[in-house]
Amino acid sequence: MTTVGMDSIIVRKENHLETPLDDEVILMHAESGEIYGLADTARDIWVALREPISFGALLDRLVEAFDVTREVCGAEVGDFLARLERAGMIEIRPRAPSAP
């Protein structure tokens, strides 16, 4: 598992299918066939990952949208991203190299 730092870039992988169902976003891993349902905050995080985003910027958005401290949010979102990474749905890249 990759350690998530504030500068880490979270990138969705292209190896899944996605469809809305009820209030959830349903994901299917194209190779394993595993199905995941994302509801509530998990769905909102997934939507925020539509474009590659740094962990810090993701937390900024979530802290603004939800009544939660940055510390609590950081721990919970970090756990969730680790689960998505284990499921093969995202890639967590170390900080993008700065332009010369």
Partner: peptide, 29 residues
């Protein structure tokens, strides 16, 4: 509701154990 609805419906397909041998999983999804 939600993901469980899809999972349960997939599991209720007759001879679902042959499904992915015959059809592309993405199309079934």
């Amino acid at each position: 509701q939600g993901g469980a609805r899809l999972r349960d419906l997939l599991a209720s397909i007759y001879r679902s154990e042959w499904l992915n041998l015959i059809r592309p999983p993405a199309e079934v999804f």
